[in-house]
């Protein structure tokens, strides 16, 4: 399984990345939506992209819209991982095409639960 972790905070990229690696993922990182699109355009197609919302250059919502409007990226599951936590914001992200939504702060257990919901939890670590 491959994941792309998109966040302007290096600390958060490391946190999300290392949780996913503990679940057996191979991860790559990007510091904003534009960099993340570059990674996809290079041909790196992850199973999962964890996307922060507020980032410089291109924010997470724009990234989600861009990915969902390109049929070549249909296999990528998109999960917003953000501190934005109003109902209206969650609805906006889902409407833009995000498959799941995780509110910061979250625990590794919460990430495991979300991956299980998405069917993206590798079998060998399911409990």
């Amino acid at each position: 399984m491959r994941a792309l972790v998109i966040d302007d905070s290096r600390a958060m990229r490391r946190i999300v990345g290392s949780i996913l690696e503990d679940f057996g993922y191979e991860t790559r990182q990007a510091g904003d939506g534009r960099q993340a699109l570059d990674v996809l355009e290079e041909g790196y197609l992850p199973d999962l992209a964890c996307v922060d919302w507020n980032m410089p250059v291109m924010d997470g919502l724009q990234f989600v819209s861009a990915v969902r409007s390109n049929p070549a990226y249909r296999s990528v599951t998109l999960m917003m991982v953000t501190t934005e936590s109003e109902t209206s914001q969650i609805v906006r992200a889902l409407a833009a095409g995000a498959h799941e939504y995780m509110i910061k702060p979250f625990t590794a257990d919460a990430m495991r639960d979300k991956l299980a919901l998405l069917g993206l939890l590798p079998q060998e670590v399911s409990l």
Binding site: S9, T83, E84, S85, E86, K104, P105
Partner: peptide, 8 residues
């Protein structure tokens, strides 16, 4: 940022 988002 995380504190701020929750306050917001």
């Amino acid at each position: 940022n995380v504190l701020g988002g929750n306050v917001k």
